[in-house]
């Protein structure tokens, strides 16, 4: 169609150009040769439904796939489960800042329990070393490194997911891959997350983590865990919404160890705490320890002004516990109320 004559020479020349172009295109894509489709979950993973849409059979198939995936990646036999929330339970965490010594045992117990990636290492809990005299977390030191803790001039403030009642993170997810469960725990469907990281940007507590690379966990650690479980007559379990090894490219977060807590155990971070700074339980049960703490201690939440309504409370031990024997003081009146009379003529107070 164009004016150039269609000679044999031109034909050959454009042929060579096309071949060269295709060749360049293919060689640009060469790194994909190392691509392991299994890391993306294969065809079954691709076709899997959203967590809330899966039937019992779908879930069974998915759990079986998780088991074989763990076997393939870490050569360990595990039992995958999907533990559901319990009716009449809403979990709440309370942390005693007077007790915490900043040893970071909780940080590492959490990584162990929840099978986070070790390289790059993902930690759900950040402990801040705070100078006394402030509660402004921007003044905290994230990277304190002391042979012994605590330091006299500081107090320590561990921060993890606050399991907000009004979470900014679930709101922003474009595909509903993250939501709050009936027991108050915000979870992520690792098989649904598209990895846009909008939730990470939205979280005011920096509680979310992203798997920038395929997570790695040393096989020996998983084998040791399995042996420990078998010594107790149990199997090594992983849970769909919490501690199963994660795929690459998805977001994850603290789940209050829901695979433990939904079966009546305490979270790993609490169990390991050497000073008993961490308290956990069901706020709907008025006899629970956390219910008592919320009733009797002067608790506070971080960044209350953002309206996120966290389920994670901090408190200091009170020097003067408020009990019935406490002396009462005479109260003084407040500001007298001013009555305004709109429309009344000036200078004639009623």
């Amino acid at each position: 169609m164009l004016a150039r004559p269609s000679t044999r020479r031109n034909f050959l020349r454009s042929g060579v150009q096309v071949v060269a172009g295709m060749g360049a295109f293919v060689s640009a894509l060469k790194p994909l040769a190392d691509f392991d489709v299994d890391t993306l979950g294969g065809v079954e993973g691709f076709l899997q439904k959203h967590y809330k849409e899966m039937s019992a059979d779908d879930m069974k198939a998915s759990l079986a796939r998780i088991e074989s995936d763990v076997k393939r990646r870490f050569d360990v036999d595990v039992v995958a489960r999907d533990i559901k929330p319990v009716d009449g339970v809403e979990f709440v965490y309370a942390l005693n800042l007077s007790r915490c010594v900043g040893c970071r045992k909780c940080v590492h117990a959490c990584v162990q329990e929840n099978n986070q990636s070790r390289s790059p290492e993902i930690q759900y809990i950040r402990v801040l070393e705070m100078p006394k005299g402030t509660l402004d977390i921007e003044k905290g030191n994230h990277h304190y490194d002391r042979p012994t803790v605590p330091d006299e001039d500081h107090f320590y403030m561990p921060i993890q997911c606050h399991q907000c009642d009004d979470p900014p993170c679930t709101k922003v997810c474009p595909v509903e891959a993250t939501w709050t469960e009936p027991d108050g725990i915000t979870v992520v469907d690792y098989d649904w997350c598209i990895g846009c990281r909008y939730c990470e940007a939205a979280c005011p507590y920096w509680a979310r983590r992203f798997n920038f690379a395929e997570p790695t966990i040393p096989k020996e650690e998983l084998i040791a865990k399995k042996d420990a479980a078998e010594a107790k007559g149990e199997q090594l379990e992983v849970n769909y919404l919490s501690n199963r090894p994660r795929p690459v490219g998805v977001v994850e977060k603290c789940t209050f160890c829901l695979h433990r807590t939904r079966e009546g155990k305490m979270p790993a971070c609490l169990e390991v705490c050497p000073v008993g700074a961490r308290k956990f339980g069901n706020i709907l049960d008025s006899t629970s320890e956390v219910a008592q703490i919320l009733k009797t201690k002067r608790v506070f939440v971080l960044k209350e002004e953002l309206g996120t309504n966290p389920r994670f409370f901090y408190y200091f031990d009170e020097r003067y516990p408020q009990d019935s024997s406490q002396k009462s003081f005479e109260g003084m009146p407040g500001m007298p109320e001013i009555t305004r009379t709109h429309g009344a003529s000036k200078g004639e107070p009623k």
């Binding site: 922003v172 474009p174 649904w192 598209i194 909008y198």
Partner: peptide, 21 residues
Amino acid sequence: MGRPDRGLHLFMRFNWPISVL
């Protein structure tokens, strides 16, 4: 995107109008 292979999830559970994205 961390998982462009899951782009289709947008058509299956579209969190509109809550998510600005």
